[in-house]
């Protein structure tokens, strides 16, 4: 069963380095906990039994940026918080990806004032934007699968 049936009796497989590395990255994606506001509650709901994000290998939310390769920015980012966001992003090891969860972190959402950063892409590069205020847990899961898709199709020349 499993990998043995693919091997035949040769003991090796032929594939590209890209495929193997990208396969590995997708199957061990650990997000850093970065709950800021309302969307963090939906992120918790996505972890709960009803939506069960661990089906996609995502049950490990790390509190430490050093152990994670995905940052889900969940909620509105304020001016006071933005240096913290950047510092945590800088602490993450390469390769690293960012998901902007919700309208506020994608573009500022309904807030257009002195306090809210209009989109976290002013502070860190964002890979996937998820719309909604707050997005449903299904939307978060869809966003993560979209990111998986993106990572699986990465080319060697683009590797950081």
């Amino acid at each position: 069963m499993g990998v043995e049936t693919k091997l035949g009796n040769l003991g090796f497989v032929t594939t590209t380095l890209e495929k193997v590395v990208n396969w590995g990255r997708v199957r061990a994606m650990w997000p850093v906990l970065f709950g800021l506001a309302c969307c963090a509650i939906e992120m918790m709901a996505a972890q709960s039994a009803d939506y069960d994000m661990s089906r996609f290998g995502m049950e490990l939310m790390r509190a430490s940026p050093r152990q994670s390769d995905l940052m889900i920015v969940a909620g509105r980012l304020t001016r006071k918080m933005s240096p913290v966001l950047r510092r945590i992003y800088d602490q993450m090891p390469e390769p690293k990806y960012v998901i902007a969860l919700g309208d506020c972190s994608s573009c500022g959402g309904i807030f257009n004032n002195y306090a809210v950063v209009p989109g976290v892409d002013e502070i860190v590069p964002v890979d996937v934007y998820i719309a909604g205020c707050p997005p449903r847990p299904e939307a978060l899961i869809h966003g993560i699968l979209t990111l998986y898709d993106k990572v699986e199709n990465q080319k060697v020349k683009d590797w950081a």
């Binding site: 509105r76 913290v84 004032n113």
Partner: peptide, 8 residues
């Protein structure tokens, strides 16, 4: 850290 300026 989450001052959003809602009142304003």
């Amino acid at each position: 850290f989450l001052h959003t300026g809602i009142e304003k």
